[in-house]
Amino acid sequence: MSGILNSSIGRKFAMALSALFLMIFLLQHFIINFSSIVSADAFNNMSHFMGTNWLIQYLMQPVLIFGVMFHFIMGFVLEIKNKSARQIKYAKNNGAANSSWMSRNMIYSGLFILIFLIIHFIDFWIPEINTKYIQGDMSGLLPSGEYRYYEELVHKFQPMWRVALYCLGFVFLALHLMHGFMSAFQSVGANNKYTKALKGFGKAYAIVIPLGFIIIALVHHFNH
């Protein structure tokens, strides 16, 4: 058990665990956001619960931040290590003959997702932390007495540049998940008779979730 992160398989396992955790989080995030185009009340209620429940705020939120940071840092560490494992490059390399573009460019799709996440944090997470923990307003209410979450969400998606940037971020997320979903399962050792079905499910997940996020952003932009 000691030094498992010092071994190539241990690092791969940790990378996969953080990825699986992030994919579960993403699904949860998607479900709540999707409710915003169905019912503003449902979205407000769920957002208020997530934003004020102590278990989510003080346990799950730090775990999530750790998970995100770990996944990014480990991704870069592995990339540097892997680059140094081949110092002289091939004069001609036909990567497309044996692997997908997504699988060969995880670092670039990941890098774009990181940039997107920084913007996303500035847009939503930092104002949220400011309102709740710096200003001390845990009510989640507007001066009018209504919940603020839906209003804030819609307001954010008014500028076209932000909608475009978010859509681009989701495209890179889809590309990342196209390889990442199945890769995470392979890394934890799952490769059996269910692999084919899991591959199909992974492809569907990689398209449906980011596409859903794109639809949410577009609906709020064009509806208001």
Binding site: K12, R86, G189
Partner: peptide
């Protein structure tokens, strides 16, 4: 280097060794 599951090895292997073997090694190792 570290495996990132691109699957290039399986395609280029002259003996058709499957990625299943890497998954099995991961299980054995863990």
């Amino acid at each position: 280097g570290n495996c990132t599951n691109t699957g290039a090895c399986e395609v280029e292997c002259p003996k058709g060794i499957s990625l299943e073997n890497i998954a099995r090694m991961n299980r054995e190792y863990l």
